[in-house]
Amino acid sequence: MRILILNWRDLSHPAAGGAEVYTEQVLRRWAAAGHQVTLFAAAVHGRPAHEIRDGYRIVRAGSRFTVYREARRWWQRHGRGNFDVVIDETNTVPFHAHEWVDDGTRTVALVHQTCEEIWHINAPPVLAHLGRHRLEPNWLRRLGGGPILAVSESTREALARFGADDVTVVPEGYEPPLPLPRPAKDEQPTAVFCGRMVSYKRPGDVIRAVGLARERVPGLRLRMIGGGPLLDRLAAAAPAHVTFHGRVSEEEKHDLMARSHVHLAASVREGWGLVVTEAAALGTPTIAYDVPGLRDSTTAAGGVVVAARPEAMAASLAESLPGWLRAAPAPLPYGGAHSWDTVADTLLAEVQRHARVPRGPMRVAA
C-alpha cells in the first residue's frame, strides 16, 4: 500500500508525546513490511524538510497552526494519484482530509483523545469557552462524516457524543524495556508520579493525596518525575516527604518507577495513559482518577480508579497500599496493552478495510 499519514508532530518535535510514539512504532513496522509510508508533519527547528527514518519518509512544513494548510497544499502539488489511503491523525484539530482529498483516495481518521475539559486549563477563558463549545464540536462533527479509528473506548464514547457513528477501537501498544528492570522495592512506602508538570496532569492533586494518606500510612513518601512549567513552583512549596527528580533518562525513570510501590495519575483526561502501562509492566500498580483514558489503561493494567478528588485517591492509597507492601504485583506483560506488532497488524487491517484495499499478508516486521 501507499500510505500517507498526517500528524501535526513527528517524533523529532519537542512537544512529541504518546501519540507520536504510537505513530513511529506503527509506521516503521509498515515500512519494514514493504508498504510505502509518508508522514506529513510540522517543521522542526534543526530538522530537514524531507527525511527518511526507519524506512518511511517524513515531510515537514508549516507550524503548529499552519501545518493543516501546508498539508493541503502539499497534497495538491504532490499527493494526488500517489496514495491508496490517507490517515488523518487527530490531536485536537483534525486535518479534515476527507474534505479535500479529491482524487478518490480513501481517508481514515485516527483519534487519540478529545480535548474538552482541557480547554479550560490550557487556554485563556474566552478562547477556552470558544474552543470547548464551538470549535472542537464543529471539528469533530465534521470528522464524523468518515470512518474513525480510536485508541480507547473512552475516546470512542467521546466521539459518539459529537455524532460520530463509524468508530472502531484499535489497541494501544507498549514495548517493555529489555532487560526488564527488577530492583527491590524501597523499604519505605513510596508512591510515584511520572509526567509533565502541567495543569491538566494535576500534579498538585497527587501531592495533596499523598499528604492526606500519610495520616494512615506513616512514612509514605512521593517521587515526582518529569519537567514542565509548574516544576519550580511545586518543588519550592513541597513538603519534605516529596522529592522532585525533574526530567530523567528512560533508564532512571524505569528504575524509580520499578522501586516504587504505587503509581498515581490524576490527569483531567488522556487518550490512554501510557505511563500507567509502563508502571504495570514494571510491577508497579496504579491508582488513577476515573477519567477518560486513564480508566481504560488503569483497568487494563489491573489498577484502581477513584473519583477525581485528592481525598478519594488518599483513601484508596490507605486501603490498597498495605497489601502491595506485603506482596508487590508481578510485572504485567505489555502493561495491559499489546505488542507493537499486534497494534501495527490490527491498525493495518482496519485501514485496509476502510480503504477497500485487498488484504495481503498481514504480519509486519519489527
Rank of each mutant, 00 (worst) to 15 (best):
R77D: 11
R60K: 12
P94T: 06
Y68I: 09
H133F: 13
E99R: 03
F65H: 14
E136G: 04
P124L: 10
L135M: 06
R80G: 03
W75E: 09
S63C: 09
R64E: 15
Y56A: 12
V67T: 12
A97G: 14
D54L: 02
T105S: 06
L135H: 03
R77F: 09
V85M: 00
E70A: 15
F83W: 08
R73F: 10
W119F: 05
N82V: 02
Q76Y: 12
V85P: 03
R80A: 04
W119Q: 02
R77G: 11
W100M: 02
A109F: 10
L127I: 07
T66D: 10
I58V: 09
G131A: 07
E117N: 06
L110A: 02
R72L: 01
H78M: 08
H78I: 00
I52N: 02
H96V: 01
R106Q: 08
H96Q: 05
T66Y: 07
V111K: 02
N138H: 13
S63R: 12
E99M: 00
V108N: 03
D84V: 10
V59E: 12
H98K: 03
N138W: 13
R69G: 14
R69D: 13
T66K: 05
R73P: 09
I121K: 15
P137A: 02
Q113W: 13
Q76T: 09
G62N: 11
A109G: 04
V59H: 06
I87Q: 12
W75H: 07
V59N: 05
V111T: 01
P124E: 05
Y68L: 11
T92S: 11
A71R: 01
S63H: 09
L127M: 10
G62A: 10
P137L: 07
P94Q: 03
P137Y: 08
P124C: 12
E89Q: 15
A71L: 00
F83S: 04
H98G: 03
H129K: 15
F95T: 07
T66L: 08
E116N: 06
V111Q: 00
E70Y: 11
H98S: 04
H96I: 00
N122G: 15
D54N: 03
V108E: 00
T90C: 14
E89R: 14
A61I: 09
D54K: 02
R64K: 15
N122W: 08
A128E: 04
H120M: 08
E136V: 03
R106P: 10
A61W: 11
R132F: 13
N122I: 14
T107S: 07
A71F: 00
T92G: 00
R53E: 11
G131R: 06
A128D: 07
P125V: 14
V93D: 14
N138A: 14
R53C: 04
L110H: 01
A109I: 00
D84Y: 09
E99D: 03
I52Y: 05
H133V: 00
F83L: 08
N138M: 13
